[in-house]
Design a protein around this nucleic acid. Structure first.
Lengths: 344, 344
DNA sequence: CTGTTAGCGCATTCAA
DNA sequence: TTGAATGCGCTAACAG
């Protein structure tokens, strides 16, 4: 590498002490505009960049946070990363994106290692890491603040952000009912995600409200992937009394449904209405008949990062999810385990 | 946070010097198995994790590399990240994923800042950052090693990895010809990417070989996005002598073609054959009639990382890309600007 | 094979 | 509003 200039070089050049330069770097008050000016000019001419490593070692915070994830949907993770990254750049903190394997028994160790090695100030967890006990335990043991995005299991023990899945599923189901559908197939999401149950509940609630009987055979298991959508659709469409609409718990599965329908030579959306649920635009893009709920993934990630920065406290916001032309609501809640501090 | 144990604690507990502990951490030779054993036990019981910050500050390398990208295709970036990350975890180096905006006039500064602040040992550039002059200049000024993945402009000045776009385009065009197609529409990629020209050349080469005349009006401009695929397809399909097959330079545009064909009520692939070109499985997944070349994105990223680790030198490998059932070949080349060292 | 010493570049006490 | 000393946790020489 090249010769790098350090804080001492800057101090020398600006004819001030090292400490004063440090003050300028960290935006401390009590620096006269004149000296600040001098220091800044010196920094610019030397193209000085403070070493993160040195700052971390000497200081108390690292200006780094970690995003830990294990999600195989590129679209979803892309949105998450964008959301976190946006808020981070605004605040000039570094984001360490760290994929992990929640199935790996050493994931707790890995996270512990990551946090202590990098000195991150906080952690953001994306589903399904949000529900990995080993990770949660490690983080609590380390006493490092963290926020969960759309946790599958909502113990209300930790800070987290999420949307209102029940309401969204209710909305989309109601939409189908309003269009005259009475036999609506539902494809569940992956059992690990609480959202799967929530969406099923919303579906049932919408049916209940208008008095449509719930038929268990109109509910198929799924796993949030294309293949499970194909499998479920194959079963639905082979039924003598097949559904006139299929509500897939996410777009990947909806795409699977579309594929099967296409192979069967069906005329969509006349023969079959398909609705999805996610922030991916995959299937919607290729085959317009698909209708979908847009999950505000990016916004959730942004809000989660914000929440992490703000530290503990109680926050309530509402983010819209979009169903076709209609709008609905998502809520963000902040929960955490009470500590001695709170009891005082 | 919690009390963290440092190298001194470990040394005390193992009854050795700090230097010996350091040797164990860094896998140095000349440590007797017995002492190594002792040290490792001490590290385990104390749950000791060396501070990256301290190691960077004291040492000469950081065990960190940066991946710099500005790509709006989630699928593509996902593959790139996975590939880099795989190789990094094998070698126990930290990967810093850093999105940038190549259109921002300050990218050069941003990259310079990133590199000097984090002390990264090397950088991987993903398209289109591979061709951002400001970034390339900053990296060369900093004298930090870097590798480009699928550069758009191939000056052969720097280390880079890429696939054989000409051969792949030739393969896929030949495939169409073999199926009896004579009027084959071609949708070009974004002009910024060298691959766009390469693929066009491969298309023409395949036509030439069998004596099919090249018709300029069968070539449309595109930009690697869905919309440009729609626009091009609309023009193609409105022609009196319309193509019987369309070769889109990537899958996003191919998806656009499919969408238009669908709107026109065409029966695919009888009325029209569509072939794409990319590593995304988007359109292929939703609409099976699409045929596509799989670009070995993940493998390229892995190879790029490997190349970065190996340092300068000359490397030649071959990675397969996949066309339907047939296999073809991609090549990886290593080029760099000659330095004084080489002249000796 | 092992230990001693001296910084890496910065923030953080304290004083002035 | 500024400055001088001290040390964060580790590695890099150099000894032994």
């Amino acid at each position: 590498m090249n010769e790098r200039s350090n804080i001492r070089d800057v101090a020398l050049r600006a004819k001030v002490s090292v400490k004063t330069v440090s003050r300028v770097i960290n935006d401390h008050p009590y620096v006269s505009p004149a000296t600040r000016e001098k220091v800044e000019r010196a920094m610019a001419t030397l193209d000085f960049r403070p070493s993160m490593a040195a700052r971390i070692l000497a200081g108390t915070k690292s200006n780094q946070i970690a995003l830990i994830y294990d999600n195989h949907s590129p679209h979803y993770m892309h949105q998450i990363q964008i959301g976190c990254w946006e808020r981070c750049t605004e605040k000039d903190v570094r984001l360490l994106a760290q994929p992990v394997d929640v199935a790996n028994p050493k994931v707790g160790d890995q996270v512990r290692g990551l946090v202590t090695e990098t000195h991150v100030d906080g952690v953001i967890l994306s589903s399904p890491v949000t529900d990995c006990l080993a990770v949660l335990k490690a983080l609590e043991a380390l006493n490092v603040p963290f926020v969960r995005i759309s946790p599958g299991t909502n113990h209300a023990l930790t800070s987290s952000v999420f949307m209102d899945d029940v309401q969204a599923a209710d909305d989309i189901t109601t939409h189908l009912i309003n269009r005259g559908h009475r036999r609506i197939g539902f494809i569940k999401g992956h059992p690990n995600h609480m959202a799967s149950e929530e969406r099923l509940y919303g579906y049932r609630r919408a049916l209940d409200r208008v008095g449509i009987a719930f038929e268990p055979h109109y509910v198929m298991d799924g796993a949030f992937d294309y293949e499970s959508g194909v499998a479920a659709a194959a079963q639905f469409l082979a039924m003598p009394q097949r559904p006139s609409a299929i509500f897939a718990s996410n777009d990947d599965m909806a795409a699977g449904v579309l594929s099967v329908a296409h192979d069967l030579g069906m005329d969509l959306p006349n023969d079959l209405s398909v609705v999805g649920f996610d922030d991916t635009t995959i299937a919607q893009m290729v085959w317009p008949p698909l209708t979908t709920i847009r999950q505000p993934t990016r916004e959730l990630a942004y809000a989660a990062t914000e929440l992490l920065f703000n530290g503990v406290g109680t926050v309530h916001q509402r983010l819209p999810h979009a169903l076709i032309e209609r709008a609905s609501v998502a809520s963000i809640g902040d929960y955490r385990q009470p500590t001695e501090k709170d009891s005082k």
